[in-house]
């Protein structure tokens, strides 16, 4: 063939654009990434930043007006006993809900992942997902009726002559109360019920990925089933547990509807944020409260990373 090989020159805007993208792939990348990055940067981080900024202002004690100058006074207020109670209460609730979810979810997920087959498996998926398809509020109101003083649990226990058990549990200090529906126990039960699917699904996914031959090898090498569980299955399932715990922990930290409907009216962080904005106009304190779950989650993820939870990722 004579002469250098030449390609026909691309004409028109589309042609020139496609030339540009071919010669400088960076431009195409930037163009494709710009919208999601703008979304993330402006809408997500931007609003978060606006919130953070608010928390460094303080409300003027006398006029109730917000003074727009840098101060840490509002963060100091978080440590006043009444406010610190709210933080401790919310974090302990989130921690206990997460622990209970792990304990409940693991056997369910294990059975669904390793033993259920065919229709049973479908049934398990349905059973876990079904509660997620109905309205959150409907579920919470239903639980209010179930846990009420004149509700089905206390009715059934009275009928079985076991009313004293319930009374005994409810007479416990702090977590007890007048009835299940006005005690921390009730709040805890409903939290666990509502967030449990968010623990089961990631744990099940991680258990399904544990290779069967590793378990068989463990048995061939003489490990008891308990040793296999502790040294093989559990470490391999840990990323799933951590993922699930991030869901249950952060969802409980932020929720403000369940403790308002079920419980003793003592505030959780979400409710405190809601109460301080609005007519009260104490946006700085509301913002400072909103920063607490962010910090708690950051610490939680840092600890999880240190413990090697993400090594298997």
């Amino acid at each position: 063939m004579a002469g250098p090989l030449s390609y026909p020159r691309a004409d028109g805007l589309t042609g020139r654009l496609s030339d540009l993208f071919w010669r400088r792939p960076g431009v195409l990348l930037a163009l494709l990434l710009a919208p999601p990055l703008l979304w993330l940067g402006v809408i997500y981080i931007g609003s978060l930043f606006a919130l953070l900024t608010q928390s460094f202002f303080a409300i003027d004690e006398f006029t109730g007006m917000i003074r727009r100058e840098f101060t840490l006074k509002t963060y100091g207020e978080l440590f006043r006993p009444a406010n610190f109670d709210i933080i401790v209460r919310t974090v302990s609730m989130a921690a206990s809900v997460t622990l209970a979810s792990v304990v409940l979810a693991f056997p369910i997920a294990y059975f669904a992942a390793r033993h259920a087959r065919g229709r049973w498996k479908v049934l398990f998926y349905l059973g876990v997902m079904l509660p997620l398809w109905s309205s959150y509020l409907v579920k919470v109101y239903a639980w209010k009726l179930i846990l009420a003083k004149e509700g089905i649990i206390s009715w059934a226990l009275q009928g079985a002559g076991l009313g004293f058990v319930l009374d005994g549990i409810l007479s416990l200090p702090v977590i007890g109360g007048n009835s299940l529906s006005v005690s921390y126990i009730g709040t805890f039960m409903v939290f666990v019920y509502v967030w449990l699917p968010f623990m089961i699904l990631p744990v099940q996914a991680s258990l399904e990925r544990v290779p069967v031959n590793l378990i068989e090898a463990s048995g061939d090498l003489g490990a008891s089933s308990r040793q296999t569980f502790v040294h093989v299955i559990l470490p391999l399932a840990l990323p799933g547990i951590i993922a699930g715990s991030i869901f249950t922990f952060s969802l409980t930290l932020g929720d403000y509807i369940i403790p308002q409907i079920i419980g003793s009216s003592r505030l959780f962080i979400g409710q405190a944020v809601y109460a301080h904005q609005g007519t009260a106009g104490n946006i700085p304190l509301a913002a400072a409260f909103a920063v607490v779950p962010i910090v708690v989650m950051a610490v939680y993820l840092w600890i999880a990373k240190r413990k090697g939870a993400f090594d298997a990722l």
């Binding site: 109730g64 006993p81 406010n83 709210i86 007519t279 009260a280």
Partner: peptide
């Protein structure tokens, strides 16, 4: 009013 809000939260919380 904003102090009513923060103090009433404390009262309900048992403070």
């Amino acid at each position: 009013y904003y102090r009513w809000v923060s103090d009433y939260i404390g009262v309900i919380g048992g403070r």
